[in-house]
Nucleic acid binder design. Structure first.
Length: 609
RNA sequence: GCGCUCAUAGCUCAGCUGGAUAGAGCAUCGCUUUCCUAAAGCGAAGGUCGCAGGUUCGAAUCCUGCUGGGCGCGCCA
């Protein structure tokens, strides 16, 4: 049983297609949409005109014919052919009421997925010895939100924090620190970060890289970068390389130090993730080191399938439609990130049995993921062991920009750390809450410092997350804290506040049971109900298209619809007890939907604001 | 050089496999409230949908070319 009116209409139209045109037309999409203008009814069917073209018929005549046979008895009040061949649908009040009653259940109209394969979501992507920065913010909160959406529709989600915890950079940092005699037990994350930055300069590459870069006419800054690195490629690099070899061979001292670096990094990471209210912990860590013993067999798989080819001493996988190959083994016999990523694909599809692999990684790695997915397909890891096709998806999110429209930096030009950003957001949220609590009519008036502080944190963090998730993911966005924490406009705090006001309204009513019959009379009640009924479809849409901003836009629309309703329809003061009960039930249902929707975005809702 | 991506109101952005008059928020201006938290509401103004062609009943949306910005381009991740 479906609760989405759009689907009910679609099904009825398809049945009509089938009976008037023949069974081969039963799957044509009727393109049912919400009407943009009330004079066109509640829903409009747009698909007739396209179908008329295909079957070379007059669109209006076809529309009339469809209206004649369509079965929406008791559901639709009127079906009108309009314009060049639209059909406008107005629902009956009794249908709306019935749908509301169905929706008013714990599921809130969100259907459970039929596909029960697990899903892997690659998110966060911490590098050991590196502080979190804004780039991690997006990956983490987008990945967390998508995870919540999938869990909401009943899927098992593996949140994969693919730590950068193995390889030359780490070995180099470790080597440097251990040689300098620093006590690894008392190391701070900033010490570690500094050591990483220093080590990075000498950690990379040799002359071969430059030659190759020139040969393929790589961009000038890439060559410059390699030259800079090369200038520093000294004895330190040799030392780091031998440290890496020793680490890979299981040297006890190095392994101990390595674990300390990880602990030091993750302690800081978890502090930020906690503050962010993100469901991500040690149980989600499956970093590069996890795959270290599987790399050889990855390469073997490609060699056995004749997909690997030697080039300049390295092993590459080639693709038919492009020159750029994927390098899976270096000329010195070592492995690199692509091999690790392939091992992770194998693990996720073949061992965990996931049929959907989602990578929340910034847009700059587009090419890499295209190669990774194509290589995985070539070698046959695009099917789970039970033969189900695997969907590979990269969410190439854009950058966070500063006011100058360049990647966000501090005034001194360094990267903005995530913790400093979150601290500021929380401070802004707290200031706002405290300011508002001074107003005697405010629900938060007279609250203690600690309680206000908690609410402020929820607002500040919610503001950042909502601002991030409400944009189309692929575009860059400008970080503007003032706008984010505002209680007006399409912001997190606006929706949180709307919700808090409904909570307050319900409390004031003195009721605890909200199960009166629905009565839908006014246009505002009708509009609120029609908006509410979309919830299940909106959640499905996000799960399908991986676009949380659709949910954000819709939540904003819902609060708008509630606002209009609230403005026009007295709830507590209406004389008629039956209407009062209905309006309270509508309010309560709206509140639950907002709380549920914000939870899917990973945003908390204060009871009072 | 090759490739990817973006371009919509003053600003920040929506626009759902092509659909009716391109929408919202902010900012600006005007009007309204003895009323459940003014989270205001209503109205006005604001657009060559980067440019030029093409496909068709119909294009911000699809195709081609161009301009401009961002990003990427084998032994780093």
């Amino acid at each position: 049983m479906t609760k989405d009116p759009k689907q009910i209409i679609s099904d009825a139209v398809q049945a009509a297609f089938s009976s008037t045109l023949g069974a081969e037309y039963k799957d044509v999409n009727p393109v049912v949409r919400l009407s943009q203008n009330p004079k066109f009814g509640d829903y409009q069917i747009n698909g007739i005109m396209g179908l008329a073209k295909k079957t070379s018929q007059n669109p209006r005549e076809l529309a009339e014919k469809i209206v004649g046979v369509i079965d929406l008895e008791g559901f639709a009040e009127s079906l009108e052919v309009a314009g060049p061949g639209f059909i406008n649908v107005t629902l009956t009040p009794s249908a709306l009421i019935e749908l509301c009653v169905e929706m008013d259940s714990p599921s809130l109209g969100v259907l459970q997925s039929e596909d029960l394969h697990p899903i892997a979501i690659d998110l966060c992507g911490v590098n050991v010895a590196k502080q979190l920065h804004v780039g991690h913010l997006r990956s983490t909160i987008i990945g967390d939100s998508l995870s919540r959406v999938f869990e909401r529709v009943g899927r098992t989600v593996y949140r994969e924090n693919h730590l950068g915890d193995w390889g030359l950079p780490i070995a180099m940092v470790l080597d440097r620190l251990m040689r300098s005699g620093v006590n690894l037990d008392t190391l701070s994350i900033t010490d570690l970060n500094t050591a990483y930055q220093e080590a990075k300069l000498v950690a990379k590459d040799d002359c071969g890289g430059i030659k190759t870069a020139e040969r393929i006419s790589a961009g000038p800054h890439r060559i410059l970068e390699l030259q800079e690195q090369n200038a520093d490629a000294t004895a330190a690099q040799e030392s780091a390389k031998s440290a890496l070899v020793k680490l890979q061979q299981g040297d006890k001292d190095l392994l101990l130090g390595w674990e300390k670096l990880i602990n030091c990094t993750m302690k800081d990471v978890y502090a930020s993730l906690d503050l962010l209210h993100v469901k991500l912990g040690p149980e989600h860590n499956r970093g590069e080191s996890f795959y270290r013993d599987r790399l050889e067999s990855v390469v073997d798989s490609f060699v056995k399938s004749n997909l690997a080819e030697e080039d300049d001493g390295a092993l590459v996988v080639r693709f038919k439609d492009r020159k750029r190959p994927l390098l899976i083994r270096k000329s010195d016999g070592g492995f690199m990130y692509a091999t690790t990523d392939l091992a992770a694909v194998y693990f996720r599809t073949q061992e965990l049995g996931c049929d959907r692999l989602i990578y929340v990684v910034d847009a700059r790695q587009r090419d890499h993921f295209k190669d990774l997915f194509d290589a995985s397909t070539l070698v046959g890891w695009n099917k789970t062991p039970d033969g189900t096709s695997v969907k590979f998806e990269h969410i190439p999110f854009g950058s966070v920009l500063g006011e100058d429209k360049k990647p966000l930096k501090t005034r001194s030009g360094s990267n903005v750390t995530l913790s400093s950003l979150l601290d500021e957001a929380v401070a802004r949220g707290r200031d706002e809450v405290k300011r508002r609590s001074k107003d005697e009519s405010s629900q938060t008036h007279g609250m203690g410092e600690e309680e206000l502080s908690t609410i402020g944190r929820q607002i500040g963090i919610g503001a950042i997350k909502y601002a991030d998730l409400s944009n189309d993911l692929v575009t860059d966005y400008v970080f503007d804290m003032d706008r984010m924490v505002s209680f007006e406009g399409n912001t997190g705090p606006y929706i949180q506040y709307a919700c808090a006001r409904i909570t307050s309204l319900l409390e004031k009513s003195g009721e605890t049971d909200f199960s009166s019959n629905f009565i839908i009379n006014t246009p505002q009640e009708r509009q609120l109900v029609i908006t509410l009924l979309q919830y299940g479809a909106v959640v499905q849409n996000v799960a399908q298209n991986l676009e949380p901003h659709i949910l954000c836009m819709w939540l904003h629309e819902l609060t708008g619809a509630f606002s209009s309703f609230y403005q026009a329809c007295p709830v507590l003061k209406v004389d008629d007890g039956a209407i009062r009960g209905s309006r309270l039930r509508l309010s309560e249902l709206t509140r639950r939907v907002i709380v549920d929707g914000l939870d899917l975005l990973g945003i908390e809702v204060p009871q009072k604001m």
